[in-house]
């Protein structure tokens, strides 16, 4: 059996291609490409968080944007107040996770499911948007950090090397750091899915009642799935806030939350690589569409979502896999036929 047919061949191929791209692009492309890619990497992490929560946990969450934004905001507040970013990053990860645990407790222990989850996570996201937009006054500050209402929080200090406050990560370093984070989350989730925990999460998605009758506390598994998703989204939010050195309530808007879901639907629900590709390509498309004036970007985003739900409901990556499997089958049949004729 050659190297390319073991169960490690898939991940290994992804790793080699990703590492090559990550190192080659800054060498050959202009500097702004790496800068833009950093943004799309953080979107990729956000896409992965929904890919995990929705694709594997079966929890349809509108709230990934909220956790992304909470991560960004709490990182921003902490990094302005503290010297050095290491603790700020930990806070930026802890706040969305804790919030998800609290919200998840209300939802999963209240036995809400399906569309109810969708509506509640949507409502919470919009409530945060309303509230943060309202915080322009001077009384809304945490330590020395002003929340700033719709104007957002500008001039966030850059991330520094852990333990050394004077050593900042320059945009080029952030490019590598964000890219490596994206890969780490991707491979982390792939690994997690092979563990007993990952299998149970999928079991809950497949048939909650059966999983419960087999003795698993499905509420707890859903809560853990949801919290991990919020953790990942928070990480994306920290990297996003850092890329921008700015954060504003825009990330809690319905339109931004819509994009995340479109990434996953287009890339392919139930895959990890699909939502990453969806996030990077459509994130790029959305930014480009925003620069032209003829058509409103919403028209195109809406049309993409409609077309995919109606015509390609499983998304691009699973469709490609289906076609490839079909093609393999056709070739195998041909070979078998030829062999039979020779005999």
């Amino acid at each position: 059996m050659s190297l390319f047919q073991t169960r490690w061949s898939g991940p290994l191929m992804v790793l080699v291609i990703a590492a090559l791209l990550l190192t080659l692009i800054p060498a050959f492309a202009p500097a702004y490409v790496a800068l833009q890619l950093t943004l799309y990497f953080s979107f990729g992490i956000l896409g992965l968080s929904l890919a995990w929560v929705w694709g594997y946990g079966g929890i349809f969450s509108f709230g990934q944007a909220a956790f992304f934004g909470l991560g960004g905001y709490s990182y921003a507040v902490a990094s302005i107040n503290l010297s050095g970013s290491t603790v700020a990053i930990l806070i930026g990860l802890a706040v969305p996770t804790a919030f998800a645990v609290l919200l998840g407790y209300f939802m999963f222990y209240g036995r809400l499911s399906g569309v109810y989850l969708a509506v509640i996570t949507l409502v919470v996201t919009l409530a945060i948007h309303k509230f943060l937009g309202h915080t322009a006054g001077f009384e809304y500050r945490i330590g020395t950090a002003h929340l700033g209402g719709y104007n957002g929080m500008p001039a966030l200090p850059p991330i520094n090397v852990p333990g050394d406050v004077s050593k900042f990560l320059w945009p080029e370093d952030m490019y590598y750091a964000t890219g490596i984070m994206l890969l780490a989350v991707y491979f982390g989730l792939r690994w997690l899915l092979t563990t007993a925990f990952g299998r149970r999460v999928i079991a809950v998605r497949e048939n909650e009642l059966r999983a419960e009758l087999l003795g698993y506390d499905t509420r707890l598994y859903k809560l853990a799935t949801f919290a991990l998703g919020a953790f990942i989204a928070g990480l994306g939010g920290i990297l996003f806030a850092n890329w921008n050195s700015f954060i504003d309530p825009h990330v809690f808007e319905l339109g931004f939350g819509a994009q995340i879901i479109i990434w996953v639907v287009v890339g392919g629900l139930g895959t990890l690589i699909g939502p990453i590709l969806g996030a990077m390509l459509l994130g790029f498309a959305a930014v480009e569409l925003g620069t032209q004036q003829t058509i409103d970007p919403n028209v195109i985003l809406g049309a993409i979502l409609l077309v995919f739900v109606l015509i390609v409901p499983q998304g691009v990556v699973p469709s490609v896999r289906t076609v490839m499997a079909w093609w393999k089958q056709v070739r195998a049949n041909k070979r078998a036929l030829a062999a039979a004729q020779v005999r």
Partner: peptide, 22 residues
């Protein structure tokens, strides 16, 4: 297919917003 209806009508919502904005 409740979830798909939700997604499709959301796409529709974006589409209508976009058309009306245009």
């Amino acid at each position: 297919r409740m979830m798909d209806t939700l997604l499709a009508t959301w796409g529709l919502s974006l589409l209508i917003i976009g058309i009306m904005t245009t």
